[in-house]
Design a binder for these strands. Structure first.
Lengths: 279, 279
DNA sequence: CGGGCCCTTGAGGTGCCTCAAATTTTGTGG
DNA sequence: CCACAAAATTTGAGGCACCTCAAGGGCCCG
């Protein structure tokens, strides 16, 4: 069941070098196997305000403990950050790379989300003190591990951090409300367009190109996420390609007509006459 | 758009008097318009450990503030607890009654959940400090309002409460993962059966009958929750009735064959030969 | 150069939606 | 309490979006 760890030589150069504008941060890149990887700047990482910055600001308080450093770990494509069922210890902030988070129910894999640099994973595991999902790297990357017990202790001292943590968790709830809204009562075209635009938005937030990027996940993983079959994923992408909305070749994707994608994603909002149906 | 407040004379007697076993609690029922309503016992309320009990246990600390009482409010059928877009102030624990929580996106109403006595609503609003959903009472009830700002302050003092709050929020995330898993790639019959069993389980957890209860929500609200149309909801219920799985007359429901419903909910887990298809 | 993934493409079936209308239940006012 | 109006539910017929099944083609890696 375990996806085996793969050496992906050719993946190493795929980081977009222009993407990351480094800000004040202790580490802005990391070296591995002779290659220098840029990472998302700490200042744009979701965890910064909540965890890293308070620790840096209060060295007298946290240095004596083991909190002063957040533990950075490299993760290679195909490696698991955690497996469903494992005891929960830490949240993880992704500094570089791309994660798929999923669980298996009734023989079917359900992808609960794709995560990119700067985002936070693991919040779902708090309840049962056990991971409910598995997280696997879809490309080489780096994560900061945040021991949750210590994060909670820190939050006892720092009301602002506590509140930020609550906002994170709340946002995760809200996101999944929206996710459900995207899934039900929408055509595959609407879902796919919304998915691509969502990726685009997040890439752009993290200073990657909003119109040109790699689909790190496989077609069937997209399908598991969007609730459709591999074949339908393939057909829909192809249809978008034919309509001139995107250019897709393998995993390489370019969004050619953002406006058209938006219209496709929200088709039923608009007066039907204004839009020709995709053939 | 606002559902107007309705006087529901005939709803008053519909509480199942046998249902609630009262435990040690300051208030186990409330009177309204001459009718005594039973409520869920505090001890079975989700909020008890987190909020009420710590306050009761530390009167010296919290009495001086305005925290010592959680504010109980009656809510009548058709009334809104909060509307989407309103500023977020408080979480609400439902002591009696039945809530529908929903939001409207692209002209369609998305029901994010139905809540019954003993459950907690409002966690999604923390992120934006604004309610993302609306909550409307589907029957007369009573809620405890918990000012969130004060809850966070209390959590700064009490690590156990803080952790419980985090577990609540985490559970809400997990629940919605499961919800999505129920929605995608499942037939309407599987979804409906799972829905009925879920209601049954929660009724039973709160000491109501697990097999006989009222569907407080309308057919189209079930449809909005399960991602199907009113017509399909009606047809599916009818099919279950014809198959002897349930007995349904209007909103009154009886589950006749829990085992059969379980099989229907998880049909594709089982070897196909072992189960005759519902006609 | 061959084997294993992964992706694509096609043909056919069907589960559920859409539209429409009958019937029951609920709410309102006399 | 009854009559009427409005809302909710049920039932039917027809269509299509998407799934299923099946096979072909491309790409990567030994």
């Amino acid at each position: 069941m375990e996806v085996r760890r793969r050496l992906a030589q050719n993946e190493k150069v795929e980081f977009r070098s222009k993407a990351v504008k480094l800000k004040s941060c202790s580490i802005d890149s990391f070296a591995w196997a002779g290659v220098q990887y840029p990472t998302v700047a700490c200042a744009t990482c979701e965890l910064c305000d909540l965890w890293c910055q308070p620790i840096r600001d209060n060295p007298e308080r946290y240095n004596s403990l083991e909190w002063f450093k957040n533990r950075r770990t490299k993760i290679r494509r195909g490696e698991y950050l955690f497996h469903a069922g494992e005891p929960f210890r830490s949240l993880y902030a992704l500094r570089a790379g791309f994660l798929k988070v999923f669980f298996v129910s009734q023989g079917r894999e359900h992808v609960t989300g794709f995560y990119m640099a700067g985002e936070l994973v693991g919040l779902d595991a708090i309840h049962a003190a056990r991971h409910t999902c598995s997280a696997v790297a879809l490309e080489d990357g780096q994560v900061c591990e945040v021991p949750f017990e210590q994060l909670e202790k820190l939050c006892l001292d720092l009301p602002a951090s506590q509140h930020r943590l609550h906002r994170f968790m709340s946002r995760e709830i809200t996101r999944h409300y929206e996710m459900v809204a995207e899934l039900v009562g929408k055509t595959v075209e609407e879902r796919m367009a919304a998915f691509l635009l969502n990726l685009s938005k997040r890439f752009s937030e993290h200073r990657y190109s909003p119109t040109q990027f790699q689909l790190r996940m496989k077609r069937d993983e997209i399908g598991n996420y969007l609730g459709m079959t591999v074949e339908t994923v393939s057909r829909t992408l192809r249809k978008f390609h034919a309509a001139g909305l995107i250019s897709v070749r393998g995993k390489q994707l370019e969004l050619l007509d953002l406006d058209g994608l938006h219209r496709t994603a929200n088709r039923d909002e608009l007066p039907s006459a204004s839009l020709p149906k995709l053939r």
